[in-house]
Write a protein that binds this DNA or RNA. Structure first.
Length: 689
RNA sequence: GGCGAGGUAGCUCAGGUGGUCAGAGCGCAGGAUUCAUAACCCUGAGGUCGGGAGUUCAAGUCUCCCUCUCGCUACCA
C-alpha cells in the first residue's frame, strides 16, 4: 500500500498547536504555511479536500502552568486557543475546521476510540502501588518524593535513588516519605494503567514505512522511524493519574485521564466529525475510504507520534486509512538563535499581524522560500526585507504595475485585440501554459520552497518579455505590434493571479480584483488549457500597487525589539527558585566545605557532560566527578581554586567514584561559574563557615 | 557516548539510481534601458562541494575514519 496514485479525496492535517503560548514563525514555517499552500493548491485543482486543525489543550504542562499562575487550566487554554485561532484566521490559514481537544465531541470520540481498543484487548493492564499526595490531590512521580533510604538510612533519599548509597529505589520503599510539592505525608494507593504494546505492530510498521514508503517519504522522517524501529518498540502507557484531560472511560479508570499523546492525534478525527456535522456531510470517507489520501503536516519533533504511535493506534482500531505521507519539516532559527517561547525569542504571529498590517503574504513568501525543508534554517529580518523589496516588489509587483499602467495608458484599461503573433509571443504564451505543471510538480512533492521560486520565475518571464519587446518604444511607430505585446503580457499577469493563490492568497485576490478576473473561477488548469484568461475587449479594474517596499527603519525596529529581548533575558533568564525550607544551624554545620585546587582534569569517556577531576582539598587529593564538561575545557581549569563539599557521601558516576562536590553557579547565558574565594592566596583545606 | 539529520560560491539554499552536477536566488562588479515602486533587462567575477583515506575508467554523489552544527537519548547531587 504505497503512495496513492489518484486519490478520490484528501484529508490534510496540521499539527495541533499546544495551548500554552501563541503561534510564532517557527510553527508557521514548519507546519501551517506549507499545509495551507498544499490545500489551497488542491482546492484550485478542484480536488475534494478538507483541512483539519485544532488546539491541543490537555497534558501536564498546561495543568502545571495553571497551578503556577493560580488560574484554572480552562482559563489558560481559552486564552491561547482564542489568540491562536484568531491569528490563524487573519493570516489566511484556511482550515475547514479548527477545533479543540477540550470540546465535548473530542472527548466522546477519544473515549470511544479508547473503549474500542479496550474491548478488543489491544491494551496491556498493569496495577502498581504509587504514593499519593492527599493535599495536592494527585499521584506523585518518583522524583517528587523524599524520605529515608531503607538501605543506608540516609534521610533525604529521592524516590528513584538514594544519593548516599547510590542504590536505585522505588518511591514506595522509602521510610517516612514526604511529598516535595506540599511537604505532606503521602499515602499509598493502588493505581492501574493501560499500555499500548507497540512491539505488536513492529513488523507492520517496518514494512509499511521502510519498504512501502522508502522512496516517497523525506529522509529525515524515514531516518527517525528507522532509528525507533531498530531500537525495538516497547509498550507505551496511554493513561495517566491526572485530573486534567479526558477521563479513562473503562472500569477502574476513575481519577485517570488519557495520556495527551493518545488523545491529541484523535483530535484530527474529532475535528473532522465536527466539520461534517456542521456542513451536513459524512466524515467517514475522509478517514476510512481507501481512496483517501491522508497527509499530516508536522515538525520534526512530532515524527514518532505521527509515524509510529498514531498509525499503530489506527491499525489496532481497524477501518482507518494510514497517512500517505508525513512531510515533517526541520526547525527554523531566528537571527542565528533557536526560537524559544520561554525566552521570548520569536516573531509572534499576532504581533506581526498588528505591526505589518495587510502584509500576510510577505511573511508567507519569506517563510516559504526559506522553509526548513531539508535542514534547520535561519530567519533574519534582513532576508525578510530583501525577499519583499527585491522579489515581491521589484519583480512580481513591478511587472503587474508595468502591465496595468501601460494598458490603462494605451487602451483605457481594455485588453487589446492581438494582431499577429510572432515567435516570441507564441513562446511566451507556451511557457506560461507550462507553469501550472511546473508548480504542481513541486507542490505534489511537498517542495514549497521550489514552488515559490518557480512562481517568481513566471513574473521574471513577464519582465523579460516586456524588456525585450519594448512596447513603449513601438507605440509611436507600430501600434498594431503593441496590441499583440500587451495582450500577451496581460495573459502572463492573469496566470500570475491564478497561480499565486496557494502561496500568496491575499495578493492573488487583490490582483484578480485589479484584472477583474472572476475570483471564484477555477482556473489553475485553465491557465494551460484555455486560449486566454483575459479575452480581448475585457476591461480591467483600477490599477493599484500589489506590494509596498519595506523601509530600513521598520526592520531596525524589529531588530531593536529582539535586542531588547536579549537584554531582558540577561536579567530575567535565571528563574529565581523559591527559598527552600528553613534548616537549623546544626544542619548547616553538617556540611564540611573547604577551599581546594583542581590539579588534574580530564573528560569522562562516553559521557558528554562529565569531567573527572583530581582536587587538592588540603586534607588529601581526591577524585571528583563533575558535570561541567559543556562549560569548560579540561586544560583551562587546572590550577583553579574551588569550593568543595568534602563530606558528601561518595557516589559512583559511570563507574568512577566521586568523593565530593564542587560548588558552582551560572552566568546569565547559563554557563557554569566556579564559586571560589576572591583572593588567590587562600590555602587549600581552609574551612568555609 | 548511542541514534537521526546536516556541513556545497560573501549570504540563504538546490543538487533520484556515481559519468555536461559544480547550480539558483540574493549580494557584488560592469553594461543597457526609462513603461514601471531608483524598479526591470543583459553580462561577469566567486567554490579544491567540512577534513583525510579508500572503492571505481569516473565521486558533493558509494565505503571507512575524523571534525563541527542541530534534534532525540544517556550521563550531569
Amino acid at each position: 500500500m504505497a503512495q496513492i496514485k489518484s486519490p478520490s479525496r484528501y484529508t490534510v492535517t496540521a499539527a495541533l498547536p499546544y495551548t500554552n503560548g501563541p503561534i510564532h514563525i517557527g510553527h508557521l514555517a514548519g507546519v501551517y504555511v506549507p499545509a495551507d499552500i498544499y490545500v489551497r493548491y488542491l482546492r484550485a485543482r478542484g480536488r475534494d479536500v478538507i483541512f483539519i486543525g485544532g488546539s491541543d489543550e490537555h497534558g501536564v504542562a498546561i495543568s502545571m502552568k495553571a497551578r503556577k499562575e493560580g488560574v484554572s487550566p480552562k482559563e489558560i487554554i481559552d486564552k491561547y486557543h482564542g489568540i491562536i485561532k484568531d491569528s490563524f484566521a487573519e493570516f489566511g490559514i484556511s482550515f475547514d475546521n479548527y477545533s479543540r481537544t477540550s470540546a465535548p465531541i473530542h472527548h466522546r470520540t477519544a473515549s470511544d476510540f479508547f473503549k474500542k481498543l479496550y474491548k478488543q484487548g489491544d491494551f496491556l493492564e498493569e496495577e502498581t502501588e504509587q504514593l499519593y499526595d492527599e493535599s495536592a490531590d494527585q499521584f506523585l512521580a518518583d522524583r517528587f518524593v523524599v524520605g529515608t533510604c531503607p538501605k543506608c538510612g540516609h534521610t533525604e533519599a529521592f524516590g528513584d535513588q538514594c544519593e548516599k548509597c547510590g542504590s536505585s529505589l522505588n518511591a514506595t520503599d522509602l521510610i517516612d516519605p514526604k511529598s516535595t510539592i506540599t511537604g505532606s505525608v503521602p499515602s499509598l494507593r493502588k493505581t492501574k494503567h493501560w499500555f499500548l504494546p507497540l512491539e505488536r505492530y513492529e513488523d507492520f510498521l517496518r514494512k509499511w514505512i521502510l519498504e512501502d514508503h522508502k522512496t516517497d517519504w523525506k529522509p529525515n522522517v524515514l531516518g527517525q522511524c528507522k532509528s525507533w524501529l531498530d531500537d525495538g518498540l516497547r509498550p507505551r502507557a496511554v493513561t495517566r493519574d491526572l485530573d486534567w484531560g479526558i477521563p479513562v472511560p473503562v472500569e477502574g479508570g476513575a481519577g485517570k485521564v488519557l495520556y495527551v499523546w493518545f488523545d491529541a492525534p484523535i483530535g484530527y478525527i474529532s475535528s473532522t466529525v465536527e466539520w461534517a456535522k456542521r456542513e451536513g456531510r459524512d466524515w467517514e470517507p475522509y478517514w476510512k475510504d481507501k481512496g483517501t489520501k491522508l497527509v499530516h503536516f508536522i515538525g520534526k519533533d512530532n515524527i514518532v507520534f505521527h509515524c509510529i504511535i498514531f498509525p499503530s493506534m489506527l491499525k489496532a482500531h481497524g477501518g482507518y486509512v494510514l497517512p500517505d505521507n508525513v512531510p515533517a519539516n526541520e526547525f527554523l532559527n531566528l537571527e542565528g538563535n533557536k526560537l524559544s517561547t520561554s525566552k521570548n525569542w520569536a516573531v509572534w504571529l499576532h504581533e506581526y499581524l498588528l505591526e505589518f498590517r495587510g502584509m500576510q503574504d510577505v511573511l508567507r513568501y519569506a517563510l516559504t522560500t526559506n522553509a526548513p525543508e531539508t535542514k534547520d534554517n535561519d530567519f533574519t529580518w534582513k532576508d525578510f526585507q530583501a525577499r519583499n523589496n527585491n522579489e515581491l516588489v521589484a519583480i512580481f509587483g513591478n511587472f503587474i504595475n508595468r502591465v496595468t499602467v501601460l494598458t490603462h495608458k494605451y487602451y483605457q484599461g481594455t485588453v487589446p485585440q492581438p494582431i499577429e503573433f510572432k515567435n516570441v509571443d507564441r513562446e511566451a504564451l507556451e511557457a506560461v501554459k507550462g507553469f501550472p505543471g511546473i508548480l504542481s510538480d513541486s507542490l505534489e512533492r511537498y517542495r514549497f520552497r521550489e514552488a515559490g521560486q518557480e512562481l517568481m520565475n513566471l513574473a521574471r518571464l513577464g519582465n523579460k518579455y516586456l524588456a525585450d519587446e519594448e512596447p513603449w518604444k513601438l507605440i509611436m511607430t507600430d501600434p498594431d505590434r503593441v496590441r499583440t505585446i500587451m495582450y500577451v503580457a496581460l495573459q502572463i499577469a492573469s496566470a500570475l493571479a491564478v497561480l499565486s493563490e496557494p502561496i500568496l492568497p491575499f495578493s492573488s485576490a487583490k490582483l484578480k480584483g485589479i484584472l477583474k478576473l472572476d475570483p471564484k473561477r477555477d482556473d489553475w488548469d485553465g491557465v494551460s488549457q484555455e486560449e486566454a484568461l483575459l479575452p480581448a475587449g475585457h476591461t480591467l479594474g483600477e490599477s493599484e500597487l500589489l506590494f509596498r517596499k519595506i523601509e530600513d527603519g521598520e526592520i531596525q525596529k524589529q531588530l531593536d525589539k529582539l535586542e531588547a529581548t536579549k537584554k531582558t533575558n540577561a536579567h530575567m533568564y535565571r528563574e529565581t527558585s523559591p527559598q527552600k525550607e528553613t534548616i537549623s544551624f546544626d544542619d548547616f554545620a553538617k556540611m564540611d566545605l573547604r577551599v581546594g585546587t583542581i590539579i588534574e582534569a580530564e573528560k569522562m569517556p562516553k559521557a558528554n557532560k562529565l569531567l573527572v577531576l583530581k582536587v587538592d582539598t588540603g586534607l588529601d587529593v581526591r577524585t571528583i566527578v563533575s558535570g561541567i564538561a559543556e562549560s569548560f575545557d579540561p586544560s583551562e581549569i587546572i590550577g583553579k581554586k574551588v569550593t568543595v563539599l568534602v563530606n558528601l557521601a561518595p557516589r559512583k558516576l559511570r563507574g568512577v567514584e566521586s568523593q565530593g562536590m564542587i560548588l558552582m553557579t551560572r552566568d546569565p547565558e547559563g554557563k557554569l561559574v566556579f564559586m571560589n574565594p576572591d583572593r588567590e592566596q587562600v590555602d587549600n583545606g581552609e574551612t568555609i563557615d
